[in-house]
Design a binder for these strands. Sequence first.
DNA 1: TTGTATGCGTTATCAT
DNA 2: ATGATAACGCATACAA
Lengths: 348, 348
Amino acid sequence: LSSQTLSRNVRRATITEVARLAGVSVGTASLALNGSSRVAEATVLRVREAAVALAYVPDHAASSLRRRSTESIALVVPDVANPVYVAMAKAVQQVAKERGYHLSLVSTDNVVEEETHAVQGLARRQVDGLILCSLRVTESLVQALEGAGAPVCVIGRLPGGAAVDNVRVDSETGASLAVRHLAGGGHQTIAFVKGTAGTAPSAPRLAGYRRALQEIGLESDPSLEAAGDFTLEGGRAAALELLERRPDLDAVFCSNDLMAIGVMKVLHERRKRVPEEVAVIGMDDIPECTYCTPTLSSVSLSVGQRGRLAAEMLLDRLSGLADLPAQVVTVAPYVVARESTRPAGAHA
Amino acid sequence: LSSQTLSRNVRRATITEVARLAGVSVGTASLALNGSSRVAEATVLRVREAAVALAYVPDHAASSLRRRSTESIALVVPDVANPVYVAMAKAVQQVAKERGYHLSLVSTDNVVEEETHAVQGLARRQVDGLILCSLRVTESLVQALEGAGAPVCVIGRLPGGAAVDNVRVDSETGASLAVRHLAGGGHQTIAFVKGTAGTAPSAPRLAGYRRALQEIGLESDPSLEAAGDFTLEGGRAAALELLERRPDLDAVFCSNDLMAIGVMKVLHERRKRVPEEVAVIGMDDIPECTYCTPTLSSVSLSVGQRGRLAAEMLLDRLSGLADLPAQVVTVAPYVVARESTRPAGAHA
DNA sequence: TTGTATGCGTTATCAT
DNA sequence: ATGATAACGCATACAA
């Protein structure tokens, strides 16, 4: 234990004191520091000097109260520890920083109260705008968003007709791309691991899987579909179940990458070679895909790009385009082929 | 493109309007809403009712300006995308939420200006306190912290004599534990992959490696030490270099887990069996350790616990204990043995 | 170009 | 127990 005393209660200088030291009025000092052109060069210098001398730092609360803007936005995601949202946050962060905004990151842990509280942040004027990424967008949440009185952008599917800016990805098509990719590699018996029942991303992925099988003319059977929960352990459990039910399967498509990694672990334990005996593909394309062995093929849903787009839409709203009609932007998914679906013989 | 019009400019009610509707003065309304005991029960109810009717939400800027506190703290880390800091953020977030504080997460990308700007956030009164995690704590940064005039806690090593709260971990001992773990498994020729030169975590890990080899009486040689940069690719490069120089090595200790994963990938490509031919251990114990095959042994540096401790120290400061001497808390590292160092024959 | 003065919405103090 | 009112620190509209 150190025993240095902490110096607290450092007197902070106000702009009034800066003005006094510079020998001008507060009004002038304010204009000078905020870079107004209608202030004499010499005065600006004097004021700046005084500000430095007094180590003046503007009070953020006072400034936002007066200016009615905080220069910051919020990103609300289900779980900051999830690699998908980490990537999204990175992208949003980037754009926000470029345009001079501070990003406030909120993790809701899928608790609805946390989400509504975050939306209230807009009413509290804690942030100027908000990007929301929710696993279950309820009607009441949409109403809260519409009535928030500040720009909002939702990432993910939204109930039809909601007057809210929206960035989405066609994950159903993404799922069908995965199936087609596997089929193109010669795989015939393609199993599927579902996402958490009831969540927004879950249904379209299942739908895309089924649709693609039908279109291609491959076997579609409930015994090839296993329940999942978007976790690695859930992927393990699903794999065990599938291998039990359908030992003849030669490919597995998982609703997300984490479950695909779990599936690959089970296959490894069971001495099933990937991709020779069983090919595996996930969805989301998280960095961890390249960590595992073999590297995991995946369907990219462009989280980074979606984050960037959402941030740009939001910040555009904040710089004046506030009263245009709500926009919906859709990004396209694409397959990232790696070792877990590499045709036998082909090597990187 | 949807064409719903966005409703902006929603008139927000002020406490003055709430007071008017409830038929009381603003002062009373404020006391009533903030739960003062010196207000008649009936009045409280009337005011609450009015607040609900008008959808009143207190203005955060005004409140912080008046109260001189924002009820929020900041966590400043080098990179929010790094799993280590994700875990740290999770822990801090948790504690902050429990104690009614909002957490503002700042990623500096190792840019010094970003760090100092974040520290300025204290002077701007944007946050009430700050937890700083930096890869290079310079003297000038320490001075900025000491003069910030608000509670600060640094996670990581700090120049001696700094009057700042501090949570650290003895990573040198952690490194030596890793080496001893490998030696205990019968490994004799233990290589080391360094961290990025010049960063704070780098030196003690190397020192611990060397010290342990010496204490145990194993070979210590520069040819067993490879440069690294804390990335997966860096780990790959180091592994290639080490295998070239010392094909006889039977174990590798890496300065972090990401590099260890890279090393394992190279070993897999070279058909070296892990752990039978070459054992591998990393450091940090990130969740990804359990994703790879075989699962990666690691030295836990208790990032979660460190985050929790730092948050608690900071929040304690904020609730009155501001003027006690600076504290230093050190947590102990420990080995998490997994498959990559499992003695041959032993299975989970 | 600069000074003066008012108000942002809230909380806290001091009377009543 | 409640009402009136003065700050908090800054930015701006208007006057000079």
